[in-house]
């Protein structure tokens, strides 16, 4: 019981911490970061658009690692981690896909363009939606874990191919400004605000993934209890007639 209390204490504390970080990041993105020369206020959506994309990729990397780990040592917790990563990654990926058009409309004059980054983000989203869909269609927990791990590994191997092929296909999106080589660059204050927002979103990702992980663990425990209950009632049914005869 003491342990539980400590755990929930830690959980609330970290939630408060991430909440405060997020509030500060929002403030910094709106008021501290300098005005952009051509796009002005609308450019500020960048501070959540781009980091959300990075966080989604990190979440999908977690899925890949968890998939491999599950196939190697078959502990259900790796499967719980994989499903948490996939769901949270899809959520962040959706944030990118929603903030993208909101930004594109005033900046480019159109909601959507089939340019390299947009298209590959959309394909990434489709890939992981299929993974989540696959999981819902497999009732048996062990098979679900094994086969979704195999499919997840194939998906992650596909990601670089998707990026390369679409990049060669076309490019309209600005070249990467973060980690994008020598001539790309952000104003130093912008850069700081960017990484602050990234940190805040990472915090949210970790909290969401932890909650989802716990939910999956609870579901797993429930499934096991239900199986045990079925066994007990089956035993009782088998022994009942004998009891009457006696």
């Amino acid at each position: 019981m003491q342990n539980d209390w400590n755990g929930s204490m830690k959980q609330s504390l970290s939630a408060i911490l991430v909440g405060a970080l997020m509030a500060f990041a929002g403030y910094a993105a709106l008021f501290i970061a300098p005005d952009e020369k051509t796009m002005h206020a609308i450019q500020r959506i960048f501070y959540f658009h781009a980091p959300a994309g990075m966080v989604a990729l990190i979440a999908f990397t977690v899925v890949f690692i968890a998939n491999i780990a599950y196939l190697i040592n078959r502990q259900p917790r790796w499967d719980w981690l994989a499903v948490s990563g996939a769901e949270v990654g899809v959520a962040f990926n959706s944030v990118v896909l929603i903030t993208g058009p909101i930004w594109a409309k005033p900046a480019w004059g159109i909601w959507w363009a089939w340019d390299a980054r947009l298209t590959s983000t959309l394909v990434l989203w489709l890939l992981y939606i299929s993974l989540l869909l696959l999981r819902t269609l497999m009732p048996d927990p062990n098979r679900r874990a094994v086969f979704s791990a195999i499919y997840g590994i194939f998906l992650f191997l596909d990601v670089p191919l998707v990026y390369f092929s679409i990049r060669i296909w076309r490019t309209q999106h600005p070249q990467p400004v973060i980690l994008g080589g020598q001539n790309s660059g952000l104003d130093p204050t912008m850069r700081k605000v960017f990484w602050l927002c990234w940190l805040a979103l990472m915090g949210i990702m970790i909290i969401l993934m932890r909650q989802r992980y716990k939910l999956e663990r609870a579901r797993h425990e429930l499934e096991e209890l239900q199986l045990k209950a079925e066994e007990i009632s089956a035993d009782a049914r088998d022994s009942a007639p004998r009891a009457i005869r006696a």
């Binding site: 890939l127 299929s130 499919y151 998906l155 998707v162 092929s165 679409i166």
Partner: peptide
């Protein structure tokens, strides 16, 4: 379940490249 419908959904996004 729904395996007839599922294969195109699993396969086509991966085949984009």
């Amino acid at each position: 379940r729904m395996r007839e419908l599922l294969l195109p959904l699993l396969l086509l996004p991966v085949l984009v490249p």
